[in-house]
């Protein structure tokens, strides 16, 4: 324990090229009245400084639960983490004490939520809430903290920041509130930001502003960014690499360009095919048949098999591992992996 205590606070901007955060074989379960809900079933992913990892999935895919586990904000119980490691700069956060985790959370890892209004305290002014970060974590005086708050609001391009610092959350529009959330996440200059559907609640034109801002700040601070979303468009716009989740597992991992060009998992392919395209006007859209799985009763074998057009017997009995994908000539495709028994046929067919 003492070793961890000394090692867990790294020098802030050290970048040794290794992953900032690494999730290894993470499992999360919820005990409910109806039984055990296996929300996350062995997730592996990592993100480096300055890199954007998009975690793509539908509701119930486990993408948000994984993020909450990383942040340490899962309600336990009902949630339990029976297995897995979450390494932040090589240290397993799951083995740390509450105090140690609390220090990492907020200072080194920050999170942005979908619903900015409910994430902000309605009875405290925005400036106070932003300043609180500095008062609590850095022991600043009230006046300094307020000045810092204004500076942050400027940085996230809130017009007339000095005049609005004493306004309350409800006085801001949705887009502005999300900027305030970003400002709050940035306050202590974290190494990693986890953004859980940060623009889903926003209008398209505002969405673009907020995503641009986030990408710009990420570059500026050389942060890692985990972007959790269901929107294939947003992912294509900002991600470096993508992890596609289905029923609590990562089914495919790939650099962004590769994934859209040649998906290696039938689920990814189905998602991409079901986007309406111009030449499909007047025709039926491709639709993945069936429904997302009930996490109480995840199908045996590959969880996607009841909905998969290519499923064979092996898919119903054997869980496919997330393995690398090779080019037709046998050379390894860098950064690519797929959890499909027929990954080769899928990517090349």
């Amino acid at each position: 324990m003492t070793i961890i205590e000394e090692a867990f606070v790294p020098s802030p901007r050290e970048d040794n090229g290794g992953p900032l955060l690494e999730v290894r074989d993470l499992h999360v379960e919820f005990r409910t009245r109806e039984g055990v809900v296996r929300a996350v079933n062995g997730v592996n992913y990592s993100v480096k400084a300055g890199e954007t990892l998009a975690v793509l999935g539908e509701s119930g895919s486990g993408k948000s639960v994984t993020a909450q586990a990383i942040m340490g904000i899962l309600d336990m119980p009902p949630a339990t983490i029976p297995q897995g490691e979450i390494l932040f700069r090589g240290q397993d956060m799951l083995k740390m004490s509450g105090e140690e985790r609390r220090k990492i959370r907020g200072q080194r890892i920050a999170m942005i939520f979908q619903d900015a209004l409910s994430s902000l305290n309605p009875v405290l002014s925005v400036g106070y809430q932003l300043g609180e970060m500095f008062r609590v974590h850095q022991g600043m005086s009230k006046k300094d903290a307020k000045a810092k708050a204004i500076e942050l609001m400027d940085r996230v391009k809130i017009p007339a920041a000095a005049a609005r610092v004493n306004d309350y959350p409800h006085q801001f529009s949705g887009g502005m509130r999300q900027r305030i959330m970003i400002a709050m996440a940035l306050a202590l200059e974290p190494d990693l930001i986890i953004a859980d559907e940060p623009t889903t609640a926003l209008d398209v034109t505002v969405q673009a502003q907020v995503m641009d801002l986030l990408a710009e700040l990420q570059r500026e601070y050389n942060m890692g960014l985990i972007l959790i979303t269901h929107d294939l468009g947003v992912v294509a716009d900002v991600a470096d690499k993508i992890a596609v989740m289905y029923a609590g597992r990562i089914v495919e991992r790939a650099p962004v360009h590769e994934l859209y060009k040649r998906p290696a998992h039938p689920y990814t392919r189905g998602l991409l095919d079901s986007i309406p395209r111009l030449d499909q006007k007047g025709q039926e859209l491709y639709a993945i048949k069936g429904l997302p799985p009930n996490l109480l009763r995840i199908p045996s074998g590959c969880a996607f098999n009841p909905r998969c057009p290519k499923a064979e017997d092996v898919c119903r009995t054997e869980v496919p591992d997330l393995l690398g994908v090779t080019e037709q000539d046998g050379s390894e495709l860098v950064g690519r992996a797929s959890a499909c028994h027929f990954r080769k046929e899928t990517i090349h067919g």
């Binding site: 017009p159 529009s173 949705g174 887009g175 502005m176 209008d203 398209v204 034109t205 505002v206 969405q207 673009a208 502003q209 995503m211 641009d212 929107d231 294939l232 468009g233 947003v234 992912v235 294509a236 716009d237 900002v238 991600a239 962004v256 360009h257 859209y260 991409l272 986007i275």
Partner: peptide, 23 residues
């Protein structure tokens, strides 16, 4: 122009009109 296009190739060479302010 603001709608994210599900095509990573498009992101480098498309002109986006980013509106200022809110409705």
């Amino acid at each position: 122009s603001a709608v994210p296009v599900p095509d990573p190739e498009a992101r480098e060479h498309r002109e986006r009109i980013i509106l200022t302010g809110d409705v």
